[in-house]
Design a protein around this nucleic acid. Structure first.
Lengths: 235, 235
DNA sequence: CGCTTAATTGAACATACTCAAAATTTGTGG
DNA sequence: CCACAAATTTTGAGTATGTTCAATTAAGCG
């Protein structure tokens, strides 16, 4: 597979305006653009590793990324996903710490890198932007605490159902309005839900038997959304 | 039990200088003090409930507080503890959201309340302070993600051992240099480690048999710290 | 195609939970 | 300070959920 050449616009012309930068005036955005560079990552490639040191932060221009941590026995736990317009690695960079997780490209990605000092400078001079970062962190923390309580207290069956629903909410369907557009291995689904590959497979095949889901290789179709909500036991 | 009258100093004279406010110049600290008020909470009383709405943030002047969330079946998960000089409820307040957890006094507490607008104002005008808040959130998020992976991947025995070690690190020993100064019920220890009361009791009594711990009612003495570290399987 | 990786299935097993009952501790009012 | 009620701790037995390990089949990729 060859790298597809892509023209990367300046931050102020970036079409990913769902991003956290939208609260910044154009002048400030341009400051970020000055030293940014754009990198191509092929599907499966690692953007940064847990334990290594950051020199700035990444912003996804195109593609999807998984953020994961490694447990003691080498088992992976997927912490979250990041999509277009989202930031990666800014926490470690701002706190001057090593990366606390590994970021891996889930598909071919174009990802901009912004040097730490530029980012810090903009942060210092725009309290609105600081507040956005604080809100972002709060939101991530909320989700992490919710995952904690889910994994701690809910049975695997409910967690896997909820994982499918979250994938739907986060990345939506393909054109057929039922196939999850995020393609994951069974192991990765288990790594989100906090269970083994085998249990994931068995549970998914239960869902098929029950008619809430259809499987076509790695493609997962949600046939009965409400049933899956009931299975997930969400209120 | 009667409320003990206590003189609460202005924030700039507060002896809890381990707090996040230390990066602020005195003038700014005084702004926070203007509208703050101090409240007494008896052991066991709730400072705020998950789901309710914040009007500002709390700063602990004296005492210890537990932060917990309720799972679907009503089982509690203790998310973290907060001690003197630490902030509570600032996330929800800054994000204009309801509280995502419940805060309960673990002992008699004096806790200051600072109105939202004062806090926001100081945040807007002190980028150092914003950065401190960002670092604080990053640190909480890091811990939450670590707990997630622990609960997901480690056996109960290791988690309970690690819980004891964390209680030691966080709150230290009494004068005898071996009794944990944080007193918890067996249920609460389980609510941290993500397990049941019965399993907690059985595991603690295993530790006693193995000589790493001694139990005296709710008081827990750590007899062999290194053994406990090995049990916790921490590197 | 051939090779590597992923998915699937089965059976045995272990960890930790549930439920029930008894013993102990703690808190409170008199 | 005591007595009683309430809460907590403890123990036991049975059990379910989910893991582990091994073997087979299918899919993806160069």
């Amino acid at each position: 597979m060859k790298r597809q050449p892509v023209d990367i616009p300046s931050c102020s012309n970036c079409e990913n305006n769902n991003s956290i930068f939208c609260c910044l005036p154009d002048g400030e955005l341009d400051k970020l653009s000055i030293n940014k560079d754009n990198n191509f990552f092929k599907k499966g490639q690692v953007i940064f590793y847990e334990g290594n040191h950051p020199h700035g932060m990444y912003c996804i221009y195109k593609g999807k990324v998984k953020i994961s941590k490694l447990g003691d026995e080498g088992k992976e736990q997927i912490v979250r996903f990041a999509g277009e317009g989202e930031l990666l690695g800014y926490r470690s960079s701002l706190s001057n710490e090593s990366y606390k997780a590994t970021a891996t490209a889930m598909e071919d990605c174009y990802i901009c890198h912004i040097p730490k000092d530029k980012f810090s400078n903009v942060l210092d001079n725009n309290s609105n932007f600081s507040l956005e970062i604080i809100k972002l962190l709060s939101s991530d923390l909320k989700k992490s605490e919710q995952s904690l309580i889910n994994i701690s207290q809910k049975p695997v069956r409910e967690r896997i159902a909820e994982t499918l629903l979250n994938l739907k909410k986060r990345f939506g369907y393909e054109e057929d309005s039922k196939t999850l557009s995020m393609i994951l291995t069974r192991r990765e689904i288990g790594d989100i839900a906090g269970t083994t590959t085998e249990t994931t497979i068995r549970t998914l095949s239960d869902f098929v038997k029950e008619g809430s889901v259809n499987l076509d290789g790695k493609k997962i179709q949600i046939l009965d959304f409400n049933k899956l909500v009931r299975t997930a036991n969400i209120f």
